[in-house]
């Protein structure tokens, strides 16, 4: 069970942001605690990607507070990013590099080079076959790329993990494997913020689910400690009311 008194790894309070004249975030408030998996669900244009951009320090919000492990990502982007690993929706790695080389390069950029063993360990953890480790990514499937990106995030060994539509395009088995990886991250006390359309996967793995609509969290549900973690039917109805198909 998550200790509620622990200071949150991610704290967003009353966040407002607009692109031009169009307001996107209108008072978004959410927290993600260490060792918690938070699934942020919402329709297109609800502000999910803007939320991630705010956490990564790619945008400067008009007002509100964003903190990652206590660091303001706008004022101190490098320090904040040093606390986070980010897995984008369309896994963007280098096709001319192998899985090992990709991870090695990004770890070096992050000044988190922990040696070849750590890379191999991460690749093993995500279940990428060892005979693929030294092959160029140009021959990888989407699922394999996703695993490399997750391995990179794990190898970073940071307290916060941001996932943008992590199960998009993955087959059910790969989704299952992916969720087991998130279990591992949770066990390591990593705070995971997962932006997704995939209600089923969210129900399977999340500790809390937040519905983002019109730039703010309209409703939050917490997983039950015993039995069915969420009432999937109720969630589905709620999700459909928000104008999004599960």
């Amino acid at each position: 069970m998550i200790a509620h008194e622990t200071p949150p790894a991610i704290r967003i309070a009353d966040l407002h942001h607009s692109y031009g004249a169009k307001p996107i975030l209108k008072g978004l408030t959410l927290t993600v605690r260490h060792g918690e998996i938070y699934a942020l669900l919402g329709g297109n244009g609800a502000g999910k990607s803007t939320t991630l951009n705010a956490l990564l320090g790619f945008i400067a919000p008009a007002s509100g507070t964003v903190r990652v492990c206590g660091t303001d990502p706008v004022a101190q982007p490098r320090q904040a990013r040093a606390q986070m690993a980010y897995v984008p929706e369309n896994v963007s790695l280098y096709d001319h590099l192998s899985a090992r080389e990709n991870i090695g390069y990004f770890l070096a950029l992050a000044k988190a080079d922990r040696g070849a063993d750590a890379i191999d360990e991460a690749l093993r953890e995500v279940g990428l076959p060892a005979d693929a480790w030294d092959k160029r990514l140009s021959g990888y499937s989407k699922g394999m790329r996703q695993k490399v990106a997750i391995a990179l995030a794990l190898a970073r060994d940071v307290p916060v993990l941001l996932l943008d539509e992590p199960t998009s395009g993955l087959d059910p088995r790969a989704v299952l494997e992916f969720n087991r990886l998130l279990d591992t991250a949770r066990a390591r006390k990593v705070a995971v913020l997962m932006v997704t359309h995939d209600l089923v996967s969210a129900v399977d793995i999340a500790d809390r689910i937040g519905f983002l609509a019109d730039g703010r969290i309209e409703e939050e549900r917490e997983a039950l400690a015993t039995g069915a973690r969420f009432d999937l039917n109720a969630l589905h109805d709620r999700y459909a009311r928000a104008g999004v198909s599960a």
Partner: peptide, 14 residues
């Protein structure tokens, strides 16, 4: 275009 820029910046480089 291929969004590796986001990933690079997310590693903390400016």
């Amino acid at each position: 275009e291929r969004a590796t820029l986001r990933l690079m910046l997310a590693q903390g480089i400016g």
